[in-house]
Design a protein around this nucleic acid. Structure first.
Lengths: 98, 98
DNA sequence: GTATTGACTTTCCAATGTGGAAAATGATGA
DNA sequence: TCATCATTTTCCACATTGGAAAGTCAATAC
């Protein structure tokens, strides 16, 4: 009898929601920049990315930059759709509160 | 260097967010009805309510009904503001995604 | 070719948070 | 006073999140 719709557990946790939102506004973002933006450690970002990749919400593009291999994060169409759905779900849930 | 705004930890967890949203659309709601709506046990709802009361987001009104004491949940102005702020924060964060 | 370095990734572990069951509490009603 | 209903609190189990440190893998440095 759960009359209340559930949120997408992949995208709802703060760090991932913030990451998805940040990625939605750019074409891509470097791993290090995303890590600093979220204020987490390498390992933590890496683990969140693993979850988001598994859900196909993010794609990693690895390419050399300045001699070193770097990773760029890209929000996929599915990831964008999930973010959109989440925002909409919350708006619906909250009615016309604001 | 956390450039990303944080969410209100009291209202962000799914169960509390859903509860706040549900309460925002009515004047008040019975404890049992809220419990069924969220699909959780008495104890769990009670604990969430304790958190929300501590943040002054919810007020409990106890009064007898049918001889027995019942509890009604009321979203306070602060609770409503917090929900509103949360929705807005997410919208801002997500830009004009949808 | 091997050592080193940089950029992640994985493993390990501590801290939190959420959920349920069951015991406890408090207010009635019998 | 005893039983019952409506929560509340206590006790646990489990999942999640976070950081540190070790591991991996390229791409130089030597």
């Amino acid at each position: 009898m759960t009359a209340v719709p559930q949120f997408d557990p992949v995208i709802h946790p703060p760090a991932r929601l913030q990451l998805a939102a940040a990625l939605s506004e750019v074409d891509d973002m470097e791993f290090g920049r995303a890590r600093d933006l979220l204020g987490v450690s390498d390992s933590v970002l890496s683990k969140h990315l693993a979850q988001m990749q598994e859900a196909a919400y993010v794609r990693l593009r690895k390419a050399p930059l300045g001699g070193r291999q770097r990773t760029w994060l890209v929000l996929t169409a599915q990831g964008r759709a999930a973010l959109k759905a989440h925002v909409r779900a919350l708006q619906d849930l909250a009615g016309i509160v604001g």
